[in-house]
Design a protein around this nucleic acid. Structure first.
Lengths: 221, 221
DNA sequence: GTCTATAACTGGATAGAC
DNA sequence: GTCTATCCAGTTATAGAC
């Protein structure tokens, strides 16, 4: 009986995986707003109602894809980090890994860092996976020196550091957040076509900026 | 006869304006992908085919909205600039104006700086208006000192400066582009909900970052 | 001549009968 | 689970109003 249950669970997990894979394919092809449960079902050769056994709504499927995207990006960042290396190098490697993942998975990057999906409200479950990249960057900068902040900003940064479970100083946290907005901003510009006709390829631009950011964050050279 | 032509032209311009206003309303309400010519026509009390007298296709309407958005943002930036003020102040004021415009017009900001619209290819006409903000920022930094760049980067930045019709040094151009990616990155993070629950409100975070960026670009204090 | 309205074609999503 | 009728999208051709 336990075996029965196991195979059933495995089958279910496999089905979910297949559905998500197909959904990701449609995401890449036509964008989020053309992603429909029915379309996924059709492409998989079964009837639309069958999919509701696995995802009760389009939003649930979206949430699963968003969590997967955050996790995949987070894992790419974590795996790129080499805790033995100098901190500035760690920073640069992680940032480059983020960009590489985004360029390899543009649709999924847009899903999490692009325009919000109208009518979709992200549930709590996405918060944890969403912080993984920030956590990696913050850990690298954990010993960076503090710097003065206004009271409001100091509180926000202390809270942010606490949410990331990090002993980083508020001033350093602020510099990490700023640097991260720039990294993400550069990746988004590149991916969304803002650099078209001007900064192509953007490899050197990105790498140079990231190296300088490491310094600005206070990771030495 | 000239009078006749004038009124006709005026009527036509008025119709175009009304169509775009209604389209913007729908954009705000339901997002780009729910923007339909039929819906616009319906809300305006006439039949869908009538719109084709003014916009030959949905994409043309989108292009018009995109150009308007770039122009509105560009004008907000230009009007915020006070050529008589110290450069660091000019920089901060323009950046704050950009953020203020984005917060006041989120749908239009997303139209130009959000995820690309699947199936839509921006025509050449959007390039000019798209550079207006960059032009303002570059002008402010025109006298900033040069800094060393790799050959590839130096060429890209020289070309960018040329496209903006600015005598700015390539190294300074690179710092402006970087700073601009960060400004836009911060605005996007705020608008797209990436700061939710952590950096709210983001006024102080933004203002402090922008002030530091002015320094990094090389605008003195 | 310039516009609007009617009607039609294609193609996808959807709801309900079976 | 399947089939069908319906609806709404973009777009076009054509006919008539001003």
């Amino acid at each position: 009986m336990a075996e029965h249950r196991t195979t059933r669970h495995q089958a279910r997990a496999a089905a979910i995986r297949q559905i998500k894979d197909e959904a990701r394919r449609q995401l890449r092809e036509d964008g989020v707003h053309n992603l429909s449960l029915r379309g996924v079902a059709r492409s998989m050769g079964f009837v639309s109602s069958a999919i509701y056994r696995y995802f009760p709504s389009r939003d649930e499927l979206l949430t699963a894809l968003i969590i997967d995207a955050y996790d995949a990006l987070g894992e790419a960042a974590e795996q790129a980090d080499d805790p033995g290396a100098p901190r500035a190098q760690r920073w640069a490697r992680v940032c480059r890994a983020v960009r590489a993942w985004a360029l390899a998975n543009p649709a999924e990057y847009m899903l999490i860092y692009g325009s919000p999906i109208p009518g979709y409200q992200a549930p709590r479950d996405t918060v944890g996976p969403a912080t993984r990249v920030a956590k990696v960057l913050t850990t690298i900068a954990e010993d960076a020196p503090d710097s003065p902040l206004s009271p409001t900003l100091a509180k926000q940064m202390t809270d942010t550091a606490a949410a990331l479970d990090s002993p980083i100083a508020p001033g350093a946290m602020a510099r990490v957040v700023r640097a991260w907005t720039q990294v993400s901003g550069m990746v988004s510009f590149e991916l969304f076509g803002q650099f078209r006709g001007a900064i192509e390829p953007a490899d050197e631009f990105f790498d140079a900026a990231v190296a300088d950011l490491a310094e600005q964050v206070g990771l030495g050279s």
